[in-house]
C-alpha cells in the first residue's frame, strides 16, 4: 500500500503535466475544430459541424500549403542528416580534443541565441545587398533571395543542433575496434560508414529527425521573414487564429497527422525501441 502511495506521489506531477495540460489542451483544440464562427463578429460558437474540414478540401490553398510544408520539413531533415553524419564522424573519430571541444561549442552556441534574433540575422544575410550575395558575387552567383530555398536553409540552421548532437554522441560511443576490424577486413572508408556506422547510429538519426521534422512542420516565422511569398501550414493557422479559430484548429490536425504517420513508419523500422 505504502509503495503505491509513493508511486502516486512520484507520478503526480508528470501525470498532471501530461494529461492536465498537454493532452487536455490538445483535445480542446480538436474539439474546437467542430465548432462554428459567427461570420461578422468572428466569435466562436460551440456546436457540431464538419464544415471546417470540408473547407480544407474545398479551398486548394490548404492542400498545396500542406504539401509544401511537408516538402520543406523533409528537405530540412535530409539536409540536417547530410551535415550531421560527416560532422559527427570527424568530431568523434578524427578531430583532436581541443578541436572537438571547439566544434561542440560552435554547434550548440546558436541554441543560446534567441530564435527571432537568428531568423532576423538570416533575413539580413539574404537580402539583395546582404552578406550572401556579397560573398558569392566574385563567383557570379546570386543568392536565392527570399524564397522557399531560403526557408529551408534558415530552418536547417535553426534545427541543426537537434540532429548534430545526438548523432555525434552516438558515433562517439562506437568502439574504435569496429573501425579497426572493418579496415583489417579490407573495407574502405565509405564502405565502413555505409555498413558499420550508419546502421549503428540509425536510432540517433531518427531521434534527431523527429525534432527537425516536427519543428519545421510547425514553424511559420521563418516563412514570414525569409520566405518571400512562401506560405506554410503555420502561416495559415496564424492568419486564421483570431478570425476563425475553428478552421485553424481543423488545419492543425494536418501536421498532427503528418507527425503520427512519420512516427508510425519510423516505429516499423524498430528504431524507436533502441532509442
Amino acid at each position: 500500500m505504502k509503495r503505491r502511495a509513493h508511486l502516486a506521489g512520484l507520478l503526480a506531477l508528470p501525470m498532471f503535466w501530461l494529461i492536465g495540460i498537454y493532452i487536455f489542451s490538445l483535445v480542446m483544440l480538436l474539439v474546437t475544430a467542430f465548432w462554428t464562427t459567427d461570420p461578422f463578429t468572428s466569435k466562436v460558437k460551440p456546436g457540431f459541424t464538419l464544415r471546417n474540414f470540408e473547407q480544407l478540401v474545398a479551398n486548394p490553398a490548404y492542400l498545396s500549403t500542406a504539401v509544401r510544408t511537408l516538402v520543406i520539413a523533409l528537405a530540412v531533415t535530409v539536409l540536417c542528416m547530410l551535415i550531421s553524419v560527416p560532422l559527427g564522424i570527424f568530431m568523434a573519430k578524427i578531430a583532436k580534443p581541443w578541436l572537438r571541444a571547439l566544434l561542440a561549442v560552435a554547434i550548440t552556441l546558436p541554441l543560446w541565441a534567441g530564435y527571432l534574433v537568428k531568423i532576423l540575422a538570416m533575413r539580413v544575410t539574404f537580402t539583395d545587398a546582404g552578406f550572401f550575395n556579397w560573398a558569392l558575387a566574385p563567383f557570379g552567383i546570386t543568392g536565392p533571395s527570399f524564397s522557399i530555398t531560403t526557408v529551408v536553409l534558415t530552418l536547417t540552421y535553426l534545427w541543426l543542433p537537434y540532429m548534430a548532437v545526438p548523432v555525434y554522441t552516438a558515433i562517439r560511443q562506437l568502439p574504435a575496434n569496429l573501425f579497426d576490424a572493418s579496415a583489417d577486413l579490407g573495407a574502405g572508408a565509405w564502405r565502413t560508414i555505409r555498413t558499420i556506422v550508419l546502421p549503428l547510429i540509425k536510432p540517433a538519426i531518427i531521434a534527431g529527425s523527429i525534432f527537425t521534422f516536427s519543428l519545421s512542420l510547425g514553424d511559420y516565422i521563418a516563412a514570414k521573414f525569409v520566405g518571400g511569398s512562401t506560405q506554410m501550414i503555420g502561416s495559415i493557422i496564424a492568419s486564421n487564429i483570431n478570425l476563425n479559430p475553428p478552421i485553424a484548429a481543423a488545419f492543425a490536425v494536418v501536421p498532427i497527422a503528418f507527425v503520427v504517420i512519420y512516427l508510425l513508419s519510423v516505429q516499423r523500422t524498430g528504431a524507436l525501441e533502441r532509442m
Binding site: 461570420p39 468572428s42 479551398n59 486548394p60 490553398a61 500549403t65 495559415i236 492568419s239 478570425l243 476563425n244
Partner: peptide, 15 residues
C-alpha cells in the same frame, strides 16, 4: 462578402 470570406480568399493568393 464578409471578412471571413476575404480571409479564405486571401489564402489562395499565395497558394
Amino acid at each position: 462578402t464578409n471578412f471571413q470570406e476575404w480571409t479564405d480568399a486571401w489564402l489562395t493568393v499565395k497558394g
